[in-house]
Simulated assay, not measured.
Amino acid sequence: MSDRLIWFKSSYSDSEGSNCLEVALTWRKRPHTVHVRDSKLGSGSPCFAVGGGSWAAFLGYARTGA
């Protein structure tokens, strides 16, 4: 199994260079770790990682429109 991350953009991204994040997942039955980076910088972007539970909580909060 490869340790290389596969990055993907939000379906809301466009090709106009808008601000967007890319996400890569490390799996073990469900997302174990979520890696996040700036899509404009690509592979040269700094990135950070959060646990799957923390990411799920963030998405739940973001969906509220707060």
Rank of each mutant, 00 (worst) to 15 (best):
S2V: 02
S2F: 01
D3L: 11
D3Q: 10
R4N: 09
I6K: 09
I6H: 08
I6N: 10
W7L: 05
W7I: 01
F8L: 02
F8I: 01
K9R: 12
K9I: 00
S10A: 09
S10D: 04
S10R: 06
S11G: 12
S11L: 03
S11R: 04
Y12Q: 08
Y12V: 04
D14V: 10
D14Y: 07
S15V: 09
S15Y: 09
S15M: 09
E16K: 11
E16H: 11
E16S: 13
E16R: 11
E16M: 10
E16A: 13
G17L: 06
G17Y: 05
G17V: 06
G17M: 05
S18Y: 04
S18W: 03
S18A: 14
S18E: 12
S18L: 07
N19K: 11
N19R: 13
C20V: 10
C20H: 11
L21T: 06
L21D: 00
L21W: 03
L21G: 00
E22N: 02
E22L: 01
V23I: 15
V23M: 08
A24H: 01
A24E: 02
A24N: 03
L25F: 13
L25H: 08
T26C: 11
W27N: 13
R28H: 15
K29N: 15
K29Q: 13
K29I: 10
K29L: 14
R30Q: 14
R30G: 06
R30P: 00
P31K: 13
P31R: 13
P31E: 12
P31V: 12
H32M: 13
H32P: 00
H32L: 15
T33N: 06
T33P: 01
T33Q: 08
T33F: 06
V34W: 00
V34N: 01
H35K: 08
H35Q: 10
H35F: 13
H35E: 09
V36R: 01
V36P: 00
R37T: 05
R37F: 03
D38Q: 05
D38N: 10
D38V: 00
D38W: 02
D38G: 03
S39Y: 02
K40Q: 09
L41Y: 02
L41C: 05
L41I: 09
G42Q: 07
G42C: 04
S43D: 12
S43F: 02
S43H: 07
S43W: 03
G44W: 08
G44M: 06
G44Y: 09
G44I: 02
S45I: 05
P46C: 04
P46I: 10
C47I: 00
F48V: 12
F48T: 06
A49M: 03
G51M: 02
G52H: 07
G53F: 02
G53D: 14
G53Q: 09
G53V: 07
S54E: 15
W55S: 03
W55Y: 14
W55C: 00
A56K: 05
A56V: 08
A57S: 13
A57N: 14
F58V: 08
F58W: 11
L59N: 06
L59E: 07
G60K: 08
G60M: 05
G60L: 03
Y61Q: 12
Y61H: 10
R63T: 06
R63M: 06
T64S: 15
G65N: 09
G65I: 03
A66W: 07
